[in-house]
Amino acid sequence: MINLAIFVSGGGSNCENLIRYFKTSDSVYCALVVSNKADAYALERAGRLGVPTAVVPKVHLNDERIMMPLLEEYRIDFIVLAGFLPLIPDFLINAFPRRIINIHPALLPKYGGKGMWGHHVHEAVKAAGETETGMTVHYVTPVCDSGEIIAQYKTQLSPTDSVDDIAEKEHLLEMEYYPKVVEQVLKDTFKVL
């Protein structure tokens, strides 16, 4: 069994989608949801679905003596970021080489990097007059949004699309494709699915 930890900071729609997707899997188990924010709605979603949760403020996230025992307690094999905003510390990247992935709400390398998350990304896409946007799944490295791209999915935009319209179109891609990409990465990584 591959034990997943899902790291979140906000509402948790991707988190819930991943938990539901793997609920009946014989080889993937959503073992833990970690949030840097105690009031993240994702924690409530995870709790309703029976997945243990942990609140890890940024100061603890960066403390190897706190994070490694937590992940070892739940026997975590792989980390999936689902709207997690803090940078992942180097010790975690080293402990989970090519076993931490992230989703980004744009077609990287466009609209990535520090400060580019959520509505900030969609506002930048609108301001630039882009005719398409999409989602990117990538490996996590010490540099924000710069890891090797695993998959990208696109959606067309029209000049009349509002920032909210852009966000909704991109979010539909996340709901459809993120669990499938995670599953494929796990297959490629562990050769057991």
Rank of each mutant, 00 (worst) to 15 (best):
R65Y: 11
H119I: 15
E132S: 12
Y74N: 10
A106T: 01
T136W: 02
H120G: 06
T131R: 07
R75Q: 14
I79N: 08
G83A: 05
S13D: 02
L49W: 03
A106E: 01
D63Y: 09
K169T: 05
M175V: 06
Y111S: 01
D77V: 13
Y153E: 15
K191Y: 12
T155F: 02
D188G: 04
N102G: 07
D145H: 00
Y29H: 13
V59W: 14
S9C: 09
K187D: 10
L18W: 11
V80G: 13
V80R: 13
A46E: 00
A54Y: 09
T141G: 02
M116K: 05
L71Q: 10
A106Q: 04
H120F: 12
V121Q: 01
E174W: 00
A31I: 06
E73M: 13
A82Y: 01
D164K: 14
Y139M: 08
V182F: 08
S9A: 05
K187H: 12
A31L: 12
P97E: 04
K187I: 12
I76V: 14
P69S: 11
R65M: 11
L92Y: 09
H60M: 13
L49R: 10
A40K: 07
V192F: 09
P142E: 11
T53M: 04
Q156F: 03
V181E: 09
Y74L: 08
E44W: 12
W117D: 05
A106L: 03
E168Q: 15
E73G: 09
K154V: 07
D63P: 10
P109N: 08
H119S: 14
L49E: 10
E73K: 15
L70I: 02
K169S: 12
T136I: 06
K23P: 03
I103F: 06
M68A: 13
F190I: 04
A54E: 09
G118K: 10
V34Y: 09
N36Y: 06
Q156W: 04
Q156D: 14
P142I: 08
S162A: 05
A167E: 12
E16R: 14
S35A: 01
E132G: 01
D26H: 13
T189L: 12
G50N: 10
Y29V: 07
R48Q: 13
R45D: 10
E16L: 15
I79S: 06
V163Q: 06
K154A: 12
Y153S: 10
A95E: 14
D39L: 02
G47E: 14
I2R: 06
G134L: 05
H171D: 06
N94K: 15
D39F: 01
K154C: 11
K23T: 05
K110M: 12
I101G: 02
Y21P: 00
G12C: 03
Y29N: 12
T131H: 06
T24Q: 15
D26R: 13
M135Y: 08
A127S: 13
L85P: 12
E16F: 11
L108T: 01
N3C: 09
A106W: 02
V163N: 07
C15A: 11
L43V: 00
A82I: 01
S162I: 03
A124N: 13
N102Y: 08
E16Q: 15
